[in-house]
């Protein structure tokens, strides 16, 4: 079936099997490989993207379900080479190591701040409950998100 949607501001289309997961449509058919797959149970959030501005796990949707939506992936976050403030915060706070969970974390974190622009540390931690990282122990991820929210004094770090 033909599946069309807007991805990072561009109209995209591909002919795929109905069972095609959105994450595979994005990665394998559109070639946008920044969105990663870390599990098969909607647990890890490595595949997190935005659909119509809200975070979603693209491994738990069919591409068909996203027909006609406005999708943003990690490739759509930086603006002409200038990092998105959340990406910048992750860099400045060392919020990534191997980088595999990072695109999903950034997408989840930007969605979180859209809904709660000034979160506490506890709210950031709860807000990222669906995104797993094995490298950072989350300390610097939480710090990054608080920093991006302009709330770095709550970072809990010295």
């Amino acid at each position: 079936m033909q599946v069309e949607m807007t991805v990072n501001g561009q109209s995209m289309s591909a002919d795929v099997e109905p069972r095609t997961l959105l994450v595979h449509y994005i990665r394998d058919d559109l070639g946008l490989t920044g969105t990663n797959v870390g599990c098969d149970t909607s647990s890890c959030g490595a595949c997190t993207i935005h659909i119509n501005g809200e975070s979603a796990k693209s491994c738990t949707m069919l591409a068909a379900q996203a027909r006609g939506t406005d999708v943003t992936t990690i490739e759509g976050m930086a603006d002409n080479g200038t990092l998105h403030p959340m990406q910048q915060a992750f860099m400045e706070c060392h919020g990534l190591q191997c980088g595999y969970c990072t695109p999903g974390m950034v997408m989840a974190a930007t969605s979180l701040l859209k809904e709660n622009p000034n979160p506490t540390e506890a709210e950031v931690r709860e807000g990222l409950e669906g995104n797993l990282c094995r490298c950072t122990g989350y300390h610097n991820i939480v710090k990054s998100v608080l920093s991006a929210a302009g709330n770095s004094t709550n970072g809990g770090s010295q």
Binding site: T33, Q87, F90, H94
Partner: peptide, 23 residues
């Protein structure tokens, strides 16, 4: 000194290529 990482811009933007990204 706590210097920022060179590796990060690629990884933060989806430019980093893991094995499953290469075809």
């Amino acid at each position: 000194t706590p210097r920022l990482r060179k590796e990060d811009p690629k990884l933060l933007t989806g430019e980093g290529k893991y094995v499953d990204d290469i075809h």
